[in-house]
């Protein structure tokens, strides 16, 4: 088969894939934060929460280097109900993007992965300027930082954003609810701060909105 035909058939396959329901496809999520904003842990927790909800194969892929506090960090999670996940590579066509810090939207390599059809969840108290983003995307905002401050949900260098961001993701995607979150958080972190975790998750779950 000539190379062009191969490329053509791949395109067809891709467009088919986009129409598959969540039950048949591998759902890919990318997360972007700054060092200390806890998106690495978020990718792991998301894999565990989805697993609880019948996503039989999941993988959490943190991209780890020598990042320090404040440096851009990314992590990916792939979840699947019926297909085995065989790839370890980065997510470049995410179904969902979790943006922990609005300043990351200006980084060209991150911006390039905001493509048609993506569901973009942004940590921001106010609607952001979306004029430079592609048209056919869904944008949601949640004031994750504000929620953390309200509940004093902080670690040494700032708010622990992973729980509110996951709460917002759970609501938007419909993949898991607060009960599932509670189960996983309890398993991972024990009882001691469970109540605070859940207050934060609940606030985010209830306040995330589309713009």
């Amino acid at each position: 088969m000539p190379l062009l035909d191969i490329l053509h058939s791949i395109e067809i396959n891709k467009s088919k894939l986009n129409k598959l329901s969540d039950n048949e496809k591998i759902v890919e999520i990318s997360m972007h934060c700054r060092g200390g904003q806890t998106c690495i842990t978020a990718s792991q927790l998301l894999a565990e929460m989805a697993y609880e909800e019948d996503f039989r194969d999941t993988i959490a892929i943190p991209i780890i280097g020598a990042e320090r506090r404040g440096a851009p960090v990314q992590a990916f999670t792939k979840i699947s109900k019926s297909k085995a996940i065989k790839t370890y590579d980065s997510v470049i066509n995410p179904d969902y993007m979790l943006m922990f810090d609005t300043s990351l939207l200006d980084i060209p390599t991150i911006k390039a992965t905001i493509k048609e059809g993506v569901n973009l969840i942004i940590n921001s108290p106010n609607p952001i300027d979306i004029s430079s983003l592609p048209n056919n995307i869904k944008i949601f905002i949640v004031d994750a930082t504000g929620i953390c401050i309200k509940h004093n949900f902080m670690h040494a260098s700032g708010p622990i954003l992973n729980i509110p961001m996951l709460g917002a993701f759970g609501k938007i995607s419909g993949y898991f609810n607060l009960e599932t979150m509670e189960k996983v958080i309890k398993k991972e972190f024990g009882e001691s701060r469970l109540e605070k975790n859940m207050s934060v998750a609940k606030d985010a779950y209830e306040s995330v909105r589309e713009i």
Partner: peptide
Amino acid sequence: GFILSHTSKP
């Protein structure tokens, strides 16, 4: 390293 050591799967 990292590809298996730090990614998580069931």
